[in-house]
């Protein structure tokens, strides 16, 4: 009988994801692992998990990993990639990790055109610490630290990280996806694979933003969380390719310095 579905080699043999039911992290993990398998790079991949709900990613991925302090993933990944340019290097970060405490590391790694990939899990809240407001929390969205809903005057606006980074000449590929339906998961997989391929081709910094359901902190059922991404969240954070630098331009715009 033909095998159509199995555990990717790049996920460990025995584990249970600790993520909540309906959480986007487990889907993203699986997709990344499938791509590492398909590209045949498990043996040369180094991942950098964050402080956040995905902190235990090294218990799931069967690839070399080093945990970064909160927000510092892009700096750690920079150190690794510059020493080991032959490796596929990715950091995996939540929106608090990337867009708040680690915005400087993210922005400047992108601006230097560091040749690694960031998987940016945007769930519009701080998941791990219990649902506080994130830089990406929508206006009027309730969180434990914006109880009446995010107020632009008092709390500022949701940050469009991908659009901001796309303005930097050092960035090669940026796409926003979501994992709220089988069709969107397939698109997310295509996007990450493209980003990894760009990195393997030495084309510079890539980032895939994933709108990721957090039913627990959104206080929704998993199905409603998926619907909310379509109906509300993706209006603020439109899905699609945000930047795709052609190969000819890559040499000029960053990427030139694996050392």
């Amino acid at each position: 009988m033909k095998k159509v579905f199995s555990r990717p080699e790049s996920l460990r043999k025995k584990f249970v994801f600790h993520y909540c039911p309906g959480c986007g992290h487990s889907i993203a993990h699986r997709v990344i692992a499938e791509i590492i398998d398909e590209l045949g790079v498990r043996g040369t991949t180094i991942g950098v998990p964050p402080a956040g709900c995905a902190v235990l990613a090294y218990n799931y991925f069967d690839v070399d990993m080093i945990e970064a302090m909160h927000g510092r993933g892009p700096a750690v990944a920079t150190g690794i990639k510059r020493v080991r340019p032959e490796c596929l290097v990715f950091s995996y970060q939540g929106d608090g990790d990337l867009a708040a405490i680690g915005i400087a590391e993210t922005f400047h790694a992108a601006n230097r055109g560091e040749n690694f990939t960031i998987i940016f899990m945007n769930n519009a809240v701080y998941g791990m610490t219990g649902g506080q407001m994130a830089p990406t929390t929508l206006l009027d969205q309730k969180s434990t630290t914006s109880p009446p809903g995010r107020n632009a005057v008092l709390d500022g606006y949701p940050v469009q990280i991908s659009e901001i980074l796309a303005m930097l000449p050092g960035t090669a590929y940026i796409e926003r996806c979501t994992v709220n339906s089988p069709a969107n998961i397939v698109k997310t997989k295509r996007a990450i694979k493209k980003a990894f391929q760009y990195q393997l081709d030495g084309r510079g910094f890539s980032l895939i933003e994933i709108l990721s359901p957090c039913p627990t902190n959104w206080k929704m059922s998993p199905i409603d969380a998926c619907r909310w991404i379509d109906d509300v969240m993706s209006k603020q954070f439109p899905i699609g390719v945000i930047k795709d630098t052609p190969a000819e331009a890559a040499g000029k715009e960053g990427a030139g310095h694996d050392r």
Partner: peptide, 26 residues
């Protein structure tokens, strides 16, 4: 050969880059 110099965006970034480079064996 193989020497990497980075003027980092902050001291926080610098020490974390050092951690990354050390983990990669440099």
């Amino acid at each position: 050969e193989g020497g990497v110099f980075i003027q980092s965006e902050s001291e926080i970034a610098a020490i974390n880059m050092v951690a990354g480079a050390a983990s990669a064996g440099a």
